[in-house]
Amino acid sequence: MIQFFNVTKKYDNGTLALDNVSVSIERGEFVFLVGPSGAGKSTFTRLLIREGLPTKGQIMIEGKSIIRMKSKEIPLLRRKIGFIFQDFRLLQDRTVYENVAFALEAVGTPVSEVKRKVPNVLNMVGIGDKYACFPDELSGGEQQRVAIARAIVNNPSILIADEPTGNLDPENSLEIMKIINEINKRGTTIIMATHDSEIVDRMRKRVIVLNKGRIVRDDVKGGYDYGLQ
């Protein structure tokens, strides 16, 4: 469970990115974060992985404050959270297999386990046959699948997706959403920031609308429409 209590984030340059935000997300929920650019979506997701601290307020994940967390504990927090980005962020000098194995190796997984888990997760996202390719040999949709595989190979309880379909055509976007939905069905909490109205309207999940750092709407089975003029 994720809880924000009166979270305010003001950057050094004076930008008020989040303004007194309180919200609670249950385990296994699927939440869309929508809103215009600069509404605070990215700040919201960044704070969840302790990339920076809020100016005010408290953030709890599974009952534990991540604000009071020591810097040594941050890697442990991040192992519980998978993160995918609009620009995939794959290592260009490593193969698909190595990119995914990397996430396991970084947390000290034994070699035998890496060898078992990586092919499994690559099959799950539908690119089991591309394991020896380098990222620049893949299409955008395929690269995002690699990124998803990397994000979930550690079995995180939360998956954060920041505009995961932003660089993809509608067909590939749909495929990616199928995979993310599949991951959600296995019990992983999904928080996805997006501008893709079609996807939001089609999926009928909880929608949190942010504007100017505030939550302006929170619908259980919402649509994309901000309701902003």
Binding site: K72, L76, L77, R78, F102, V107, N154
Partner: peptide, 16 residues
């Protein structure tokens, strides 16, 4: 530096 950033995201410790 990108590689280092990704390592941080997947929860690698600083020493790793």
């Amino acid at each position: 530096k990108k590689e280092i950033g990704i390592m941080k995201y997947v929860g690698a410790t600083n020493w790793f």
